[in-house]
Design a protein around this nucleic acid. Structure first.
Lengths: 193, 193
DNA sequence: TAGGCTCATTGACAAATGTCAAGAGTCGGC
DNA sequence: GCCGACTCTTGACATTTGTCAATGAGCCTA
């Protein structure tokens, strides 16, 4: 069950036997049920996990409203980035939306791997670069695009998620409210006929 | 003049003599005048530069309008992230807003340093993590905040930039138009009296 | 199967933001 | 000093989006 993690990391940089062994022994497999919390607000995010199967979302509360910040499905790395980076309690919740199996490594173990295996920093660097790249894309979408453009962006970038995620979560992810998304959808789908 | 770069990188991870020597010889100092392009749309961003002195902004064109994506002043690393990461032509321009002096290293040289000095990946990883962290913050601000909240965020996070940057650029950076920012400002400053 | 959920949609209206146009202030070059 | 270009502000109005409330569909559970 840990193979997908090793494969993923190997793509960033080939891992030698010793490092592979270390990763294997440091990895914990955990399964969450739909609705379970993977992380709660106020906790320090002390792990990074690859989604083996399932789907999760991270969100935070702003004025009593729950705002989705990311969806993480198979192949994604789950972590509450700001909290992980600063090792301070963060404002994010992470919630499993489906039965979700994760391959997790503790923050402390990751740090130790960085010092014991310098080449593991290549993996960490590429992962961070990839995350940065994705976050940068999200900011481009959020700036100055209409609700309809944001919806189209979501459709083309996450075609499968539409079926798996409640629309209200997609709405807050795109920076609009539920009703606006609903109207955009009905207008958009009418157009296509 | 290259010391600020070495200092900055040393903070991420102590550099030994050989690596310091390599970085020094790979670094080019370049100075741009206000209004000069550091990067143009359609070019591959093949370098990363520390801002020694001055100020630049990156932007892209959307429907004939110029949208600011970031401001980069002293201590910031300038790169067009999406293009740098993919090594494909990007859609970003980078423009010097003041007389700006940069310490630049080529993409190819950086990659060679990653393989020749594995510990340099620690530096690259931390830099990417930091960039990710900042980008993540930006997405939180852009989602679901009112124009006034965005302006307040800018004030508290970039207090000095307000004096150095045209308001129209701040407006597009925050995902609103010039007039809206102007109204927010007059309302906001009236309140304080 | 009935009742009680949540989710998605729709309508009416309110509020925020965008668009277009005009005008005042600032700055640098000539 | 004057002109022209640019920046910022303001007003009137249009459009978009948000808010509140009601409704129906789907689903779980007793």
């Amino acid at each position: 069950m840990i193979e997908p993690l090793l494969e993923r990391l190997n793509k960033f940089h080939p891992l030698n036997a010793a490092l592979t062994e270390r990763i294997s022994s440091a990895t914990n497999m955990v399964t969450y049920h739909a609705g379970d919390y993977i992380l709660k607000e106020g906790q320090v995010c002390n792990k990074a996990c690859l989604v083996i199967k399932g789907l999760a979302r991270s969100y935070y509360i702003k004025e009593d409203k729950d705002i989705t910040s990311r969806f993480m499905d198979e192949g994604f790395i789950i972590t509450s980035w700001i909290s992980y980076y600063t090792q301070q309690p963060g404002n994010e919740f992470i919630e499993a939306l489906e039965e979700t199996t994760l391959a997790c490594i503790n923050y402390a173990d990751i740090q130790k791997m960085y010092t014991d295996f310098p080449e593991f920093n290549i993996v960490g660097r590429k992962q961070a670069e990839y995350g940065f790249f994705m976050a940068e894309q999200r900011t481009q979408i959020l700036r100055k695009h209409t609700a309809e453009e944001k919806y189209k962006f979501f459709l083309s970038n996450h075609p499968t998620l539409l079926q798996r995620v409640a629309l209200k979560h997609i709405a807050t992810y795109l920076g609009m409210n539920e009703e606006t998304l609903s109207r955009v959808r009905s207008k958009f789908h009418r157009k296509k006929d």
